[in-house]
Amino acid sequence: MPSVRAPRSLISGLALIALAAFALWAVSDLSQGTMRAMGPAMLPRVVAVAIGVCGLIFVGLGFLQKGEPLPAWELRGPLIVGLGMVVFALTIRSLGFAVAAPLAMLIIGRGTTEAQPRELAIFAAAMTAFCLGLFRYLLDQPIPVLIVPGTDIAF
C-alpha cells in the first residue's frame, strides 16, 4: 500500500472524480447524438470524462509527488457570513428589504472576531437607508421595501 504523499492532490482528485461521476449521472438520460447531429449529452459527457481523467491524475500525483499537507480551515467566517446571506435570501421577498438587509448585515458582521455590536448596528441601519435610496429610488430596481405579513402593507 503506497503512502499518501500529497493529501491536497488526493482530495482534489477525489472531488473531481465525484464531480465527473455526478455530471455523467445527470446527463445519463440525454441522447449522445452523432457527429452529424450532436446530441445534448455529447459535450457534457466528453468534458466530464476529461475531468474524471484529470481527477485520476491528481489522485496518482497524491501518491507519487510530495506535496503540502491539508490546508487549515477557518470555518467561523464563512459559516456566519453564509448564514447571513441565506437569511437575506429567505426574507427579501417575504418581509422586504427594510427588514432583510439589516437582519442579514447584523449576522454577517459577526463573521469577524473583531465585530463591535453598536458600530455594526449603526452601519447596518445606515447601509439599509443608503441602499434603499440608491437601488430602489435612484436606480428604480424592483426591490420590495417592506412587507408586513398578514396585512395589506406592501411597498
Binding site: I92, T112, L120, M127, F135, I143
Partner: peptide, 17 residues
Amino acid sequence: RLLFVGIVIFCCIGVYS
C-alpha cells in the same frame, strides 16, 4: 470589519436584482 459587510450585502442585492 464593516467593509466586508458592505461587500456581501452589495453582492446580495446585485445578484437579487
